[in-house]
Amino acid sequence: MIKRIEKLRRFMKVEGLDALFIYSYENRRYFSGFSGSNGYLLITDSYCGLITDQRYTEQAKEQSPSFEVVTHGIEPFKTIQEVFEGNVFSRIGFESESISVHLFTTLSSMFTDCDWVPLTKELLTLRSKKDPEEVEIIRKAIAISDQSFKELVPMISPGMTEKEVAVELEYLMGKHGHEGPAFGTIVASDTRAALPHATPSINKIKTDHFLLIDYGVKYMGYMSDMTRTLWIGSPSEELKEYYYLTHDALEKSIEAVKPGMTGHELDTVARQVFLREGLEGYSLRGLGHGIGLQIHENPRIVLNSNEVLEPGMVFTIEPGLYVPGKVGVRVEDIVLVTESGCEILTNTPRHIHI
């Protein structure tokens, strides 16, 4: 955590900030290591404070040894005020997209002599390059995901409902040690796969169609994310063409990854595959997203993104085609940017035929 605090303080110096007030779970955990559900961080160039309630005092001391842990009572504001008054600063950055109106109004009214500087994506950007410890945790999350899917596939058969498949998958993820699904598991059969975020229903798996499964696990706070489109029986040649195009877009995108390119440039690689076939209108506006303590982080691999890819970034590549009433196909892997290209972290086979 010390290196992360050092990185944060360099950012503060560049931005002319004397202090940072951090409230969001993800940033609080990233910079302090504390995984409890309630807490506030105050960080200056010489002080690191973690304010939480008595449920988490001992946990906070164990997980955040570099921080002074301060316990508040039922009402946290008096304690926050005391911690603030123990430090001298005039410009304090805060997470404008995470903090509630009530919390901000109360704090700013208590400290009217402070210049409150709103931050949006700056801290998310600081988290975009994963350190070796983070990469190893993500690898473990992916390993749980891969093993769960491997055990799920033999269970799948025509006649099962989407809900039944989702329940079996989530049971297996729990059995192998996840902390919960990374997001709502998506299971969509035949034409329902054309809904990019379909909720599992009582729709039954049909022979000679596709079955799309998109899911992820949470492990030690970090996420995995993978999509596979399974062949059930023998889909028609027309349906297979959508599948092959999507698979081609994935492969070309992975081959193209290199440090220095922008998210927009990588998105364009996959988009060109669909444009040549006149199907780009059935794709989404983005190819992928960073992954870490949140399921959607930086970098954003989307149209018009000027974020530059750097070694250490971890993100999904997930091209898809969604033709209403006909077909939905998505194939998704997670990659780690290296000095010369990328490493594919997902190990589940892409083509699965039942």
Rank of each mutant, 00 (worst) to 15 (best):
E297N: 04
S236V: 02
Y40F: 15
D214P: 03
G49T: 07
P319K: 05
C114L: 12
D267C: 14
A166P: 07
S46T: 03
H72F: 06
S253C: 02
P311D: 06
N203H: 14
H353C: 00
F210G: 04
G290M: 07
E162C: 06
G93I: 04
E265D: 14
V69G: 13
H178C: 11
G184L: 11
K129A: 01
S66V: 08
F31Q: 14
K175Y: 13
M173S: 06
S148W: 02
T338V: 06
F84E: 04
L8V: 10
H178W: 13
I43A: 10
Y56E: 10
N38Y: 15
I92M: 10
E265Y: 02
R300D: 03
I295D: 12
E82P: 01
T191M: 10
D208T: 06
I142F: 08
P181S: 08
H247L: 15
V101K: 14
K121W: 02
E277Y: 11
G221P: 08
A143Q: 13
H247P: 05
L212M: 14
T161W: 06
P299W: 06
Y171N: 14
E6W: 02
M223R: 13
S224K: 02
I344Y: 00
T105I: 02
K175V: 15
G325D: 04
F67T: 03
A182H: 09
K326W: 01
I291A: 03
L172D: 05
E136H: 05
V302Y: 12
R350I: 03
L119S: 07
W231T: 12
R4Y: 09
D45K: 09
D190G: 04
P154E: 09
A193E: 03
I74Q: 11
P324D: 00
F89G: 15
P311R: 06
E280C: 05
F11S: 12
A198L: 03
G33H: 03
G36E: 05
K129M: 10
I138M: 14
S201I: 03
G221I: 05
P118H: 01
G328A: 06
A60G: 11
Y215G: 08
V88R: 14
V167M: 12
V335Q: 08
F315A: 06
L8M: 12
I144A: 00
S283R: 07
C342I: 00
T112K: 15
V337H: 04
T246A: 01
H264K: 14
K252A: 11
